[in-house]
């Protein structure tokens, strides 16, 4: 109980002191996770849309797989990416292990199925409404996908948020491929894990509170953006 109270005080102290070390860790967390979401969106959105609109053999299997991969265990992803990026692995020559890039890759792998699966569902629903209309307008398949993605953007934004939430909160993947190296690959979650292993429970919890505050802020910013966009459209 006292740990909880101390945790809130620690969180507040850290925030008020504008600790530069903490700021750097927060910045790296955001950089890595936003980067991962950007990469995952570039891959996952077109993928989800194509699966939503496409009719090909094995489509249901792809849908099931995408939905299932939303639950990929971060540690497993971390291990696989580690084995790929390790000097002994197939991509070892690039020397990416223990860099923020490796963390972006691992989180992108985690987030892509989430964005792809949510995009697939959203676009498929919209497709049901739009299909005949777009076909009579003579829109090509590719343009259809672009149109559906654009018109579904409010819902897709929620998908991006879900992906960001997953990325910024996970520790299992980034701690393996990033190595939790101080000032290089240390992010919020790996710091929390480290402080926990040091027995600094209240500091760890304080950092956790800050992490939650950050995700709430990002979510609020996105919603504000979405609200403004909605007003602009409805003019």
């Amino acid at each position: 109980m006292s740990d909880l109270a101390t945790a809130f005080r620690d969180a507040l102290d850290l925030l008020l002191s504008l600790d530069p070390e903490l700021a750097a860790i927060v910045a790296l967390s955001l950089q890595v996770s936003l980067g991962a979401v950007a990469v995952a969106a570039l891959v996952g959105m077109p993928l989800g849309a194509v699966v939503a609109v496409g009719r090909f053999p094995g489509r249901m299997a792809v849908v099931v797989l995408m939905n299932a991969l939303m639950g990929l265990p971060p540690v497993v992803v971390g291990l696989v990416v580690y084995l790929l990026l390790s000097r002994a692995g197939p991509l070892g020559a690039f020397g990416l292990l223990y860099t923020p890039t490796a963390m972006v890759i691992a989180q992108a792998v985690l987030v892509t199925p989430i964005i792809a699966a949510l995009t697939r569902q959203t676009v498929e629903d919209l497709w049901g409404e739009y299909e005949e209309q777009l076909r009579v307008l003579g829109v090509s398949r590719l343009e259809m996908v672009a149109t559906l993605l654009w018109d579904a953007r409010p819902s897709l934004l929620t998908g991006l948020l879900a992906g960001f939430g997953r990325a910024v909160a996970e520790v299992g993947a980034v701690i393996i491929v990033g190595g939790n190296i101080n000032h290089v690959t240390r992010v919020m979650t790996t710091t929390i894990a480290l402080e926990t292993s040091k027995g600094n429970l209240s500091l760890a919890l304080g950092l956790g509170i800050i992490l939650v505050a950050i995700t709430v802020t990002v979510s609020a910013l996105v919603m504000a953006m979405r609200g403004r966009e909605g007003r602009a459209v409805h003019g």
């Binding site: 950089q31 936003l34 980067g35 990469v39 990416l96 223990y98 860099t99 890039t101 972006v104 190595g179």
Partner: peptide, 20 residues
């Protein structure tokens, strides 16, 4: 903005000599 985020995310910090 999107490009900037990407570039930022994919660029590993350039460091002087470092060992692991």
């Amino acid at each position: 903005l999107a490009t900037a985020v990407l570039a930022l995310a994919l660029a590993a910090p350039a460091a002087a000599e470092s060992i692991i």
